[in-house]
């Protein structure tokens, strides 16, 4: 079954390179383009990092493009453990645990439910499967700000408003459309014979899912996880409104930190806090970016 091989060959066979002047100029242009592009992408991060390593005085007098005179990590330490957020001066570390408490169930549930949806919609002959998917996808295009108010009323009706379950439920809801689409695309590429054979052997819906389909889904699960983690981790407004004040995540702490300020603005601390907050999804991309690239196209190319 060649279709099952979702991994993508890393390079297309190339024609042999010849040392012609035109080709050399072409390659020079190519590298020039790539280097310029890399600069465009890297500069904002370089500025954020270099600002976080400067002293307040350096920031005030110098340009943002200047590199720091000395590596000074005190802003990082301060952002982590002693910067003032409103009345408390304990840095942004307090929100880390809440962020994790919100993220883990949100992503786990989103991925599990979406995988199940994608599996049911693609591998089982469900009437109106296309219609169901389209109806779901409409949800992906509604700005969530529009739905906050009714959702608050609903979550308070079922008695979970202002708690972690409420914010988890909202995250699951908003994650469902795109994640379901990704899983459906991926599973549509699987051969139907696989299911048929298993059903002949007497395996049921869930058994096939957990025994056969899920173990083959590593790539796509990584994609779904990355998308889900990034979305949930970076959210600010939903958590502020639904999570209740004891469960506020790091992003809310970050927003408070940036607006809490005594006298001269400490851009270095703000920048350090911003980077710290963004670190988990960043690391995730750095370490699993390759799988991400593989997984996200796996279904699309064939579907």
């Amino acid at each position: 079954m060649t279709m099952l091989q979702t991994a993508i060959p890393s390079a297309v066979p190339r024609r042999a390179r010849k040392h012609r002047p035109a080709a050399a100029i072409g390659r020079l242009g190519l590298y020039g383009f790539l280097v310029l592009a890399a600069l465009f992408f890297a500069i904002p991060l370089i500025i954020m990092v270099s600002t976080s390593l400067k002293t307040v005085e350096e920031i005030r007098t110098g340009s943002i493009f200047m590199l720091p005179q000395a590596l000074d990590f005190s802003a990082w330490a301060k952002a982590w453990s002693s910067a003032c957020i409103g009345r408390q001066c304990e840095g942004i570390r307090g929100g880390l645990w809440n962020s994790i408490l919100i993220m883990v169930p949100s992503t786990a549930l989103s991925v599990l439910i979406s995988a199940l949806n994608g599996y049911a919609l693609s591998l089982w002959r469900i009437r109106h499967a296309g219609l169901l998917l389209s109806a779901l996808m409409v949800g992906a295009f509604i700005p969530y700000q529009v739905m906050i108010y009714p959702l608050v009323r609903m979550s308070s009706t079922i008695g979970i408003y202002g708690s972690i379950p409420a914010v988890v439920l909202v995250h699951v809801l908003f994650g469902l459309p795109i994640l379901t689409l990704i899983f459906r695309n991926f599973y549509s590429a699987l051969p139907e014979e696989l299911i048929k054979a298993a059903r002949v052997d007497g395996a049921g819906f869930f058994r096939i899912f957990f025994r056969i389909v899920l173990p083959m889904s590593t790539n796509v699960i990584i994609v779904a996880l990355i998308l889900s983690v990034t979305g949930v981790w970076n959210d600010y407004l939903l958590s502020l409104i639904f999570a209740g004040r004891e469960n506020l995540p790091m992003t809310v702490e970050l927003a408070s930190l940036v607006s809490t300020r005594i006298g001269v603005p400490e851009y270095n601390v703000n920048m350090a806090a911003t980077i710290i907050t963004a670190l988990p999804p960043l690391l995730l991309y750095l370490f699993s970016g390759r799988y991400f690239v593989r997984g996200i196209t796996a279904g699309a190319v064939k579907g």
């Binding site: 409103g86 308070s156 408003y161 202002g162 502020l240 409104i241």
Partner: peptide, 23 residues
């Protein structure tokens, strides 16, 4: 302490939604 760091807009959103949410 229920500070809404984003300023009046966020605070207003929080107040209205907490009233709507019965809390």
């Amino acid at each position: 302490d229920s500070a809404a760091p984003g300023g009046p807009t966020d605070a207003q959103a929080l107040i209205m939604n907490r009233i709507a949410g019965g809390n």
